[in-house]
Design a protein around this nucleic acid. Structure first.
Lengths: 233, 233
DNA sequence: ACACCTAAAAAGTCAGACTTTTATGTCACA
DNA sequence: TGTGACATAAAAGTCTGACTTTTTAGGTGT
């Protein structure tokens, strides 16, 4: 799954990135490039490239005569897919999953409304197909197969919105859905009501019913929030 | 304004980044590190660091024996503040401003609803202050002063939501508001209706009226969309 | 107590040599 | 004519060492 040989600097990042986002180095901690290079057994050049990447993510700031300072979490580029992955892999995964789900609940309804206006015939067909796939795999503990269709469905809606900012959240949504299936409470089959909502959403988009699509997505989102006890009952 | 001496690699990025996001190198274009280093008159080490950063933004991909390939726009990390700034400075600024405004219209209402539940007393006071500041500067062509309050207002709402993903959109909103004032049609004083909505929003948040805050923000967002002719009248 | 000056620490820069991967072209053989 | 193995070279990747620049901390002198 994870490519092994995509460069030394990337391997350093795989180790150092999660350590920082995981709070192993509290904000204000000072690292020195040379020391890090020794620790990871790479040359200074490689370590410098890794630090540059961390710097571009606003995880650290590098200053002369001081060193590489870890920045507080409020500074981090939390929309960077890499940072999201690191954080989801770390200890505060639950909190991260919550904030991302709230983001979804804001974005996806509007995206669905736009999709109803802009979706191509091909996208509509794809949506119907994925929705039917969800129906077919919604019973009998086929969670993995269900997840594939669920991800494809939501990704298609975001792409069909025609807004690139929405489209680029496809990966985030995929991570959230996968996280929910794999790590959180999901011992049982998906909620049949949610499955029905997806089928109806596919219909609404196909028929160009923007208001309906938005409302249905809002219902789906509320279900997701309720699962995480974010929404009051 | 723009720091001049924050490293050679940063200066290279200031030049190369906008060139790429501006479409000067179409997707698939191949650059060579050595050639770039010569062109910008820096050492290979410095150029390599710059390329690493571009790579982490998914603007380019570096492959052995091939070179540094410019990736298609769908791959770009469009949530990276740096990338956003580069694109807003470039030719497709209008398109960018539209997609960001649509994003705002999705996120801010939900953020405002959360802010009504979670805002601290200090944040409520700040909101009221900024809203009054907007009122005071809404007439007589004081656009710059108005903008400052407008930005502070929206940033405070996003922060008060208590969701870090929302909070981190403060910079984006600031860019959009500034862009609207500075480059787009804004010869006249702000819409009085919009100003009133902000005052009422501050009240709603203070009173913990989540539904009201959300609805008011939706109205504000609709105004912004209409300004860009995104919303049907 | 304050201003100024010096020294050192760490990042930043550069140049050159070497290694590794891999696209491509070539040549023999079927 | 096609195909597969092999050689070649191009470009990124890595390492090392020397040097420069900035900036902090500490000392010195009035």
């Amino acid at each position: 799954m994870t490519a092994q040989a995509r460069g030394l600097h990337a391997r350093v990042l795989d180790s150092l990135g999660p350590a920082i986002t995981g709070g192993e180095y509290p904000p204000g901690s000072v690292l020195r490039t040379d020391e890090l290079a020794q620790r990871f057994e790479v040359s200074r050049s490689v370590m410098r490239e890794a630090v540059r990447v961390l710097e571009s993510m606003h995880l650290v700031a590098s200053r002369r005569r001081v060193g590489v300072t870890v920045l507080p979490a409020e500074e981090w580029n939390v929309y960077d897919p890499q940072v999201i992955r690191w954080r989801l892999a770390g200890a505060d995964r639950p909190r991260q999953l919550r904030s991302l789900t709230v983001l979804r609940s804001a974005v996806e309804p509007v995206a669905a409304g736009l999709a109803a206006r802009h979706a191509t015939a091909g996208q509509c067909a794809a949506l119907t197909e994925y929705a039917l796939g969800m129906v077919a795999t919604s019973r009998g503990r086929q969670l993995e197969a269900y997840l594939v269709h669920d991800i494809a469905f939501h990704r298609t809606v975001l792409n069909a919105s025609g807004n690139e900012m929405f489209a680029r959240l496809g990966d985030v949504v995929a991570e959230v859905l996968a996280g929910r299936t794999h790590h959180d409470v999901m011992f049982e089959d998906p909620d049949p009501a949610a499955v029905t909502l997806h089928v109806r959403l596919a219909e609404a988009v196909r028929e160009g019913d923007a208001a309906g699509a938005e409302a249905l997505t809002r219902e789906i989102a509320e279900g997701a929030l309720r699962e995480l006890d974010i929404l009051a009952p």
